[in-house]
Design a protein around this nucleic acid. Structure first.
Lengths: 201, 201
DNA sequence: CCGATTTTTTGAACGACGTTCAATAAGCAC
DNA sequence: GTGCTTATTGAACGTCGTTCAAAAAATCGG
């Protein structure tokens, strides 16, 4: 015995790089889910996964990078949730409403993690990350495809997608920060349906 | 001489309590305007106004309180900007579009300070501050009055106000975080007009 | 006008934080 | 085994928000 005692340094061999990154990301997501952005700290995160902070710096990067990774995962999860909400043979209008419903359901089920995507503001001089733009485009493309039969013209449809997307975002954002309930008792899902129906005429 | 030398303690008599609070709020607003939420720190704020951090704690409170005060001021400024945008004898539709324009112009002119209102998320267990709800209601009431001739029924109008307000917020929010330009090259003002026009039929 | 009390102001300290440095140990190629 | 790369760590640095206790100015009662 006493052979497996850690002496403090050296690789453990428990994870390869990718596994460790995933471990860090999921642990960070859990912290945010329970206590929000304020609950996510480097030392705390390291303690949760049972490593020293430096291991996170080595394999992932600083706190901003960790947040970005959580956000990337959130966008993927949102995309998956939206995909299962639409059915190819349903009327476009129904699909649009179903997308709005799924969006708000996703946000309501995981408000703190979703909020992290927008609470975290990247430095205004740094370039917009490519993977981030792509993850966003992958999701809004879903809306684009749903609207295609209703708005065949490309530019017009792109504007409609952006506007509807922003509208849903606004409803979700004000909802999670309790600024929507102050204005009206209606659940955000009803307002989202109102928005989609009125916008699509 | 040397009579006016500060020896480190005791009131200065330069400001009464209200003036000092206003001084702190405006200095904090300036810091946020230049460097965003990350640029606002207690020690830095104290240094800017030439006092010790403790004086801010004494007269105002902790950093969260300072942020709240800046946000209250921002909502007031937004309200003033919106009031001057509408004219009582214009068609309601034009006033609605004018409100949207003024909103987005305000955000574009002061994006960092405006973002602070939504970046700062209050603790989820604490009660929603009354003055905050009132400042919000004061502003959305403007929208309500503008829509009154178009949507006479009260409940329906309240929902329309909330939805439009959230939609504008979403456009502004995605715009300041550069997440809207990724989707479409149109300036947010055009999308806001699209939203208002389509929504109001 | 003076003494007591309240209010304002401060330096110093505390604990926690993000991040970096230098050292050490494990895994790996040959 | 030997040398090299990689993972891992404790300790340190500077900064931060906040609190404490003391001191000085303002205020008030007589």
């Amino acid at each position: 015995m006493a052979k497996t005692v850690r002496r403090g340094t050296g690789p453990r061999g428990d994870h390869n790089r990718e596994e460790f990154q995933s471990l860090v990301t999921k642990a960070a997501e859990g912290l945010v889910r329970q206590e929000g952005l304020r609950g996510l700290g480097m030392r705390r995160l390291a303690a949760v996964i049972g490593y020293a902070p430096n291991s996170i710096y080595n394999a992932v990067g600083d706190l901003d990078t960790v947040v970005m990774r959580v956000n990337a995962r959130t966008l993927e999860r949102l995309h998956d949730a939206l995909v299962t909400a639409i059915s190819p043979d349903a009327p476009p209008r129904d699909n649009a409403v179903a997308l709005a419903d799924a969006y708000l359901a996703f946000v309501q089920a995981d408000p703190q993690v979703w909020s992290l995507v927008f609470e975290h503001s990247l430095a205004p001089d740094s370039a917009f990350p490519d993977w981030y733009a792509q993850a966003l485009a992958r999701t809004t493309d879903l809306v684009d495809r749903v609207l295609q039969p209703m708005i065949p013209e490309e530019d017009e449809r792109r504007q409609a997608v952006a506007t509807l997307w922003a509208g849903l975002h606004g409803l979700a954002s004000l909802s999670t920060s309790r600024k929507l309930a102050v204005l009206t008792p209606e659940p955000p899902r009803d307002l989202a349906r109102l928005l989609v129906r009125r916008f699509l005429g």
